[in-house]
Design a protein around this nucleic acid. Sequence first.
DNA 1: GCCCCTCTTTGGACCGTTCCAGAACCTGTC
DNA 2: GACAGGTTCTGGAACGGTCCAAAGAGGGGC
Lengths: 332, 332
Amino acid sequence: MRPPTIRDVAERAGVSKSLVSLVLRGSDQVRPEKREAVLRAARELGYRPNAAARSLSEQRTRTVGVLLNDLRNPWFVDLLDGLNSLLHAHGLHMLLADARLNRRTGQDPADPLLDLRVDGLVVVGTLPDPAALGAVAARMPVVLAGAREPVPPGVDQVAGDDEQGARLVTEHLIGLGHRRIAHLAGYGAVGELRRRSFEATMRAHGLADRAVVENGDMTEEGGYRATVRLLNRPDRPTAVFAVNDITCVGALSAAEELGLRVPQDLSLVGYDNTSISRLRHLWLTTVDNAGHEVGRRAARFLLDRFERPGGEGRPHLAAPTLEIRGTTAPPP
Amino acid sequence: MRPPTIRDVAERAGVSKSLVSLVLRGSDQVRPEKREAVLRAARELGYRPNAAARSLSEQRTRTVGVLLNDLRNPWFVDLLDGLNSLLHAHGLHMLLADARLNRRTGQDPADPLLDLRVDGLVVVGTLPDPAALGAVAARMPVVLAGAREPVPPGVDQVAGDDEQGARLVTEHLIGLGHRRIAHLAGYGAVGELRRRSFEATMRAHGLADRAVVENGDMTEEGGYRATVRLLNRPDRPTAVFAVNDITCVGALSAAEELGLRVPQDLSLVGYDNTSISRLRHLWLTTVDNAGHEVGRRAARFLLDRFERPGGEGRPHLAAPTLEIRGTTAPPP
DNA sequence: GCCCCTCTTTGGACCGTTCCAGAACCTGTC
DNA sequence: GACAGGTTCTGGAACGGTCCAAAGAGGGGC
């Protein structure tokens, strides 16, 4: 009653297990009638290859592990999509693990993937302990995707270009005629890059003294509170660039509560082009991080390292695009 | 340069590989000094057990596969959380696969999990081909979680009680004083159950002739359009119960566009208690499907079947709760 | 000093594949 | 009919663990 093995198939087809193996791996050194017999026997028995046995023997799993930092922030779905399309074309599977779920249980979220001896690892988003990746990278290709934290040697890195994205936003607002522009800043490498680029762009347009930065915490509540502070200033800004969409939604609530119309009285911009920003009820102007392209590039890096292991870690920044929707307009 | 094996550890510790195996599996039949030596050697070499080899030998993987129907609908995150907590307590790992990603590539999304010989399978949400589960269930425990479609024999099923949820909503609205109540219906088993329960509850309160049903398609756009139709009726309803949160957001847009204030002029209720419903800008009254409890119960079913394989498929419905937020009030 | 018993430790078979060296089988040539 | 050379097929050794039967070590009693 146990699943059939290659030997069961061999017996039924009246050949050796080696021949079955040859047929199933698509060799052309097999006489057609034997091939037919083997395939028929496999079909009749409902044979499925045992991945454990195969990878033990082949010393590879044809599987890459994908470690997500948090399933609750589904900005990475496009990224996975891009990743999967390329990996699948090369006969590789993806296995997902969620760092947040496993962290709570106290173990390293990558452990199950490493024990499975995945052929490579894609880390999506920022991990609590990025240094640990260095040790892993010595044993298998590792790509960090969608995070901008510094990377241990030998790890490739792919992400959206946050500096360019923040510049696009800031120039969009300046182009609309805004001068007093505020930024709701976030934390982490990404938060830092977006803020710096905002400041640099304002400076480049001679608006350094009109730029305001308030700290949010990348939550809706943080965005709300920071915006209330901003809008109560004597020199109230006419536009707000939030570090991400969720902060921007908080800003939207604050504006509404204080009786400001968006975008007529106040322009708002988010970042990430999340599904939330696409709700017609919100319809946020935002930045699309080219997740699909990031995913494809991550797959590319991985495939390259399968062919030529070792070497320096390479970086790649994908060009983001501005999604102009309903929350930006010229200042009043 | 290949990862160390149990033999490398044995050699370094000066014992046989069998003893290493005993120590690593926590046997108490080992003299403390040997145990110490083995553990030290394993640590020094950075030894990690090879999951493929182990599962080949043990004939089990200590891993359950989780097949998600679509990562883009993250209502299942609580469910995974509940699932993981119980599985982890029993030394089992979770491996995720996304049906939608793999479907696009033309293969059965469960294939990689089956080839890995996972010990059990949890299917989260509705699959395109539920009948295929029957064949799988003959070989391993299978639980369908968070879907209400009919289930092949031998498959357990856990989900929120949609009938009760819809009743809670409808009675909440009736209790507030609403009489003309509309339902934005969805499709699938869940859509059907919620609609039927809405109609039954209205009937039970003698309001059968005040109940209206409009079909949405479980998208924001569908909710928007259905609501526009509703609100242009001569006997405009004073409350709308949407089949899910995203449809409810569409309804919210429509109401706003037609100049109706929510909840003063129109009450709205969603379903699923998604993160979207919790945005303070929307703050939808909605139904929480007890995802955590559903996940725990799914794990329970799985664990039971590991102990006693076979037997009928069992159903379990978790009791949902009403989350009263900002979109419901007495009628004008 | 020997025997018995218990506690530790070990070698080897096995799990289901792949891969390789070589066997077996053709076909054609001289 | 022997031989060469190619094609097709097969047995057995990995791969890295687990598990079992049995060997070895140590202690106690006579």
